[in-house]
C-alpha cells in the first residue's frame, strides 16, 4: 500500500509552544547582562520587552503572558529583577499578543508592547502596586520615560529579530504583513 501524506509543520502544537516558551524564558533571563546599555544616567534593559514581542508574535497572547510571568518570577528569585516590572511585563505581553493576533502585523504587536509596558503598566503600578508598598498612590508617572525608552528599544529589537529569523527561515509568520 502506498500512502502519501503532506503535512505542514507549525508552532501550533502544545509541545512546540511549551518548548519555545522555555527557550524564550531562558533568553529573557540569560541575556539581561549582555543587553543593558546606558541612556543618560539610567541603565536600560530592553531584553524583557524584546522577548515579550517575540513570544507575543510567535506564541500568541496567553503563552506570552506565561513567558513574561515566568521570566519575572525567575528574575526575582535570582535577585536581578524588580517586582515593579513584574505586572508590567505581563500586561505588555498580553497586549502585544492581542494586537498581533488582530492585525497579523508585527509593528502592531510591538506597538502593543510599548503601550502595555510603557504607558499602562506604570499607571497600573501607581494605582495597584504602589498603595500596597508605599502606603499611598504616588505619581509613578515619573517612571514613564524610563519605562518607555526601554520598551521602545526592546520592541525595536524584537522587530529586528523577527525579521532576521524569518529571513533565516527559522520561523514562519503566517499571513504576516510588514
Amino acid at each position: 500500500m502506498i500512502i502519501e501524506v503532506q503535512t505542514r509543520k507549525s508552532i501550533a502544537s502544545d509541545t512546540r509552544k511549551a518548548a519555545y516558551a522555555v527557550v524564550l524564558v531562558a533568553i529573557g533571563v540569560a541575556l539581561a547582562p549582555y543587553t543593558s546599555f546606558p541612556i543618560g544616567i539610567a541603565k536600560v534593559n530592553p531584553t524583557q520587552h524584546f522577548v515579550n514581542v517575540l513570544a507575543a508574535v510567535l506564541l500568541g497572547p496567553w503563552w506570552a503572558v506565561v513567558t513574561a510571568a515566568v521570566i519575572g518570577i525567575i528574575r526575582n528569585v535570582l535577585g536581578v529583577g524588580t517586582l515593579l516590572a513584574f505586572p508590567g511585563g505581563m500586561i505588555g505581553a498580553f497586549l502585544a499578543g492581542l494586537f498581533y493576533r488582530q492585525t497579523r502585523n508585527v509593528y502592531a504587536g510591538a506597538g502593543g508592547e510599548v503601550i502595555g509596558t510603557g504607558l499602562i503598566a506604570p499607571v497600573a503600578s501607581a494605582f495597584f502596586v504602589a498603595p500596597f508598598l508605599m502606603g499611598k498612590v504616588i505619581p509613578l508617572v515619573a517612571l514613564v520615560p524610563s519605562f518607555l525608552s526601554s520598551t521602545i528599544a526592546g520592541a525595536a529589537l524584537g522587530i529586528l529579530a523577527l525579521n532576521l529569523l524569518q529571513r533565516a527561515d527559522i520561523v514562519e509568520l503566517a499571513g504576516r504583513k510588514m
Partner: peptide
Amino acid sequence: PAFLGPLLIQAFQLAEELA
C-alpha cells in the same frame, strides 16, 4: 545583529530539538 542573529538562530534550533 552580530550578537542577536547567531544567538537567536541557535536558540530556536534548540527549541526545535527540545520539542
